[in-house]
């Protein structure tokens, strides 16, 4: 093992430096570095922002559109539309919006949900559908 010669070749000051450096390394694992990338959910109605919330805090909320109330839910880092007054409920079938990015919309009720912040990671820049 290298530990024997290593310790043998370290001066007292070296050991102090190693101890401090080790402490820095250990502490760096506990730094609140994760606070940065958390995305925010931004909901707009009629092209006006009406609601925003962090993506990492579970909650239920709703917004009022011309047709009525659209209900949404943030859970496990994802946001989805849970209920909507629109006739075809296409928005309910759109699934969830999470780290993979994208957009949710209930076009009849003029509700748009997207993510702010660059927390998104995708293999593409735009989606043709």
């Amino acid at each position: 093992m290298v530990l024997g010669p290593l310790l043998e070749r370290m001066t007292g000051a070296d050991r102090m430096v190693a101890l401090l450096a080790g402490l820095v390394v250990v502490l760096s694992f506990f730094l609140p570095l994760q606070s940065g990338p958390g995305g925010r959910v931004v909901v707009s109605v009629e092209n006006r922002t009406v609601f925003t919330a962090p993506l990492d805090q579970p909650r239920d909320f709703s917004v009022e559109g011309p047709l009525g109330t659209t209900h949404m839910q943030i859970d496990a880092g994802e946001v989805r539309i849970t209920d909507s007054p629109c006739p075809q409920k296409i928005c309910l079938g759109l699934g969830a919006l999470g780290k993979k990015g994208g957009l949710l919309a209930c076009v009849p009720n003029r509700v748009v949900v997207n993510l702010a912040g660059e927390a998104v990671e995708t293999d593409y820049d735009l989606l043709s559908r």
Partner: peptide
């Protein structure tokens, strides 16, 4: 900097360590 502060006491291992970090 480290070498300048502790020229007589620091060894190559300490210097290399702060260098790497």
């Amino acid at each position: 900097g480290l070498y300048g502060c502790l020229p007589t006491r620091i060894g190559p291992v300490g210097v290399s360590l702060v260098g790497a970090l």
